[in-house]
Design a protein around this nucleic acid. Sequence first.
DNA 1: GCCTGCCCGTGACAGGTGTCATGGCAGCCC
DNA 2: GGGCTGCCATGACACCTGTCACGGGCAGGC
Lengths: 204, 204
Amino acid sequence: MSETVKVLLADDQALVRGALAALLALEPDLEVVAEVGRGDEVVDAARRSGAQVCLLDIEMPGIDGIAAAAAVRDELPGVRTLVVTTFGRPGYLRRALEAGASGFVVKDTPARQLAEAVRRVHAGLRVVDPSLATESLVDGANPLTEREREVLRVALRGGTVAAIAGQVHLSAGTVRNHLSAAIGKTGTSTRAEAARVAQERGWL
Amino acid sequence: MSETVKVLLADDQALVRGALAALLALEPDLEVVAEVGRGDEVVDAARRSGAQVCLLDIEMPGIDGIAAAAAVRDELPGVRTLVVTTFGRPGYLRRALEAGASGFVVKDTPARQLAEAVRRVHAGLRVVDPSLATESLVDGANPLTEREREVLRVALRGGTVAAIAGQVHLSAGTVRNHLSAAIGKTGTSTRAEAARVAQERGWL
DNA sequence: GCCTGCCCGTGACAGGTGTCATGGCAGCCC
DNA sequence: GGGCTGCCATGACACCTGTCACGGGCAGGC
């Protein structure tokens, strides 16, 4: 059982990816066997390389790290996933765990803890950033309904209600109602704020 | 002249910082002599450690990497700075060069090129991401006036015109005028969009 | 069956927003 | 000085927004 742990790295920023590889290469019991820059390449690369643990950034082109974790869970049982992200948004944590991720680490944790997190995940343990575990509880579940999320996602890019209504194929009045509900639920006063807050909380 | 180049690392994400340190440690001619997580600690740490090249992330608490580069230029002549950032926004490049940075590298450049960039900067050369150099020219200069930028920065956080007017100590009507001008100059139709676009272009 | 919750739509209303015209003030350059 | 530009402010106008009240439809749970 003293063989090395095979790790796959997924991050869209080549520099960060390479740096993380260098960091993990310092550990004699870890081996980086694959590196990808897109979420939709994770499953293929993991299968080909025989990776045992996948380190996934959330922000990636193709599909994001959370969706990639779900894909790995569905198609490669036995392969563990560890989500590493810039933003410690509580909603991300919840969604990552729902997607079957075994671990969730924020990018401002000390570098030395990363290797340890990989080992724990490989051992079947669950690794969760402690600062987020508590926040996640007080934040509670997503109060937004499906339509409200859809409208908010479009509203994130800006534009008038009419423009949003066109993209969602609803009437302008309905869009205003959904936005009004979202504004109420986020405790804000404009739809721009509501969209920003909702995104920060991982509600979209 | 075959001595090692002393490098300071500044990035708010500890994991990335450690990973970059590991990456640079692979190069025998480079030596990481200091690591900081805040922009306002750069000058002190560089002075103490005798760093010759400072690797600065832009997004940092305290002061950002661009302001830190300006501070290094003013207080530590002879010390070169290399700005490394996630977003390849043309405005960032221009501002970084104005702040006296000797190099500008985006985080999705290949990991191997980082060490080479550090060497070139230390040798007195200027290193600029080629994909940005052209974009920077077509984008042109910042068309926004000082007041417009100020109002937009506040508008970025959302809120009504009255709230913005209060924070900027102007009348609501004037704020509307500035916002209207900014909307025109950004080619958008709402102030939320204008603020977003302006920030993406590094105009704020 | 009834009730609840979510969805979609309409209409109306107060207030916010974006645009424009106008004026005054300061600084700068020819 | 005259012209120009940027800044601040005011007022007016049409339009957009956020809110509320009201319907109707559809699913799930008691």
